[in-house]
Write a protein that binds this DNA or RNA. Structure first.
Lengths: 238, 238
DNA sequence: CGTAGTATTGAAACGGATCAATATCTGTGG
DNA sequence: CCACAGATATTGATCCGTTTCAATACTACG
């Protein structure tokens, strides 16, 4: 399951890192920096539905998704689940609080991730400001994405939420298929838990989108966006 | 309005910075680091309702709230407002995207903030990994707070959202008054825009809380929590 | 091929949004 | 210091969409 990471890889490559706090142009890591990171990391493969770590377990490493997709979620006391994030290529996960992970992370399909043990990573960041700046930029980007999500979670309409989800998927998975169709790695239930609405509402909302000829399905998880204009309108912040 | 920051200050003091990515104990800045930051910063005072910066204007500086409170919000196309965050002592604000601020920030009452011009701050962070690590920790904490908020925004019940807001205020403003009462700096409308529910729903929810003797009001903005146990139950993630 | 998990569809009820009227607060000028 | 006006907040009635409950259909994996 573990093996040493090969040298050419998207780990911390520029395309995985968005442009920075502000006005700063995007930047690449130096070869040396990338090599340092790679020397710390192992590439780990997870089987579908495999748990990568559990909430409340001690933090041992930080991960960067290399391939496939995963979900980070919490179990609420009511038994409900909230999906905090879907994880795609380049996404960082494994942050914790008081030395414990806060979410449980599970692979959706087959998934490979770089695993960066926490202690040596921290040591490296503490001595290489330039490298750390890349991480900072990444986390700042995460903050913005979460602000956006918070705004969109404030809205009531199920169809708006689903539209927003489809946009996100489209952005994330563009080019997965030649014909413009995208295949979602997660179940309807996962989508519902992510959007904070019920499974039934997701079902009804997607049905309406299909009836309006805004999207089309080929199988349960393969979606084609037919009318991007109207999808954008629905997803727009009310 | 502008004046040079005095030397003793909570700017980036440890108590304003939460414990770090993981397992790392909280740490202080060295005197030298603090001095460096102070040499970059100016302490600025804003009058109630004064706009600190507008969304879409070019990013010039990053701010740390020193005293008072503010709100960061966006105007949606519909004319609605979404309050993205309330800003209290120690909170960092002024992150942007593509060189532009994404939110508008406005002082609620009288407010003072450290203003750190972006360019020199970036240069300093890029050369001092230890200092930057404190910033990273801060931003990571922000990510967690936003994840929490996202979860709570997913819930439907107005009373639950208001309870959660009261908890937040309590945590933020404890010790504002000797008698345990807390005085909120923001209006009902701001609260509604923050929670993503209507003003009317906030009004009705607070009324129910008062009727259940969970909280009490002395004036419109001074709140006493009478029954913390039941408040916690209501605020608990459903 | 069957079974357990996953998804669709329908009917009813609940709760927040909306619209509308009234009340209260805040800050300003007389 | 008071009175007034505009902004802010409360309260009520109705509407609409999502949740909930329940039954049925689908699908994936052994």
């Amino acid at each position: 399951m573990h093996r040493k990471a090969p040298d050419r890889s998207p780990l911390l490559r520029a395309d995985a890192w968005h442009d920075v706090t502000d006005g700063v142009t995007r930047r690449l890591l130096t070869d040396k920096q990338r090599a340092q990171l790679l020397s710390l990391s192992t590439l780990v493969t997870y089987k579908p539905k495999q748990i990568i770590y559990h909430a409340h377990s001690p933090v041992s490493a930080i991960f960067v998704c290399q391939n496939g997709a995963g979900k980070a979620f919490r179990e609420l006391r009511s038994g409900r689940r909230r999906v905090v994030a879907f994880l795609f290529q380049g996404d960082l996960f494994g942050l914790g609080e008081h030395g414990r992970y806060v979410n449980t992370v599970q692979a959706l399909g087959e998934m490979t991730s770089y695993r960066l043990p926490f202690e040596p990573l921290e040591a490296l960041l503490r001595q290489d400001a330039e490298l750390q700046f890349n991480v900072l930029a990444k986390v700042v980007h995460e903050v913005r994405a979460l602000q956006m999500r918070t705004i969109l979670m404030g809205r009531r309409s199920a169809i708006g939420r689903v539209a927003m989800f489809l946009q996100m998927m489209d952005k994330q998975l563009q080019g997965t298929r030649a014909d413009g169709a995208l295949s979602a790695p997660m179940s309807r239930t996962d989508v519902a838990d992510y959007l904070g609405i019920t499974l039934e509402s997701v079902s009804r909302a997607t049905k309406r989108l299909v009836q309006s000829k805004i999207i089309a399905f080929a199988g349960k998880r393969t979606i084609t966006i037919l009318d991007r204009r109207r999808l954008d309108e629905l997803a727009a912040d009310e």
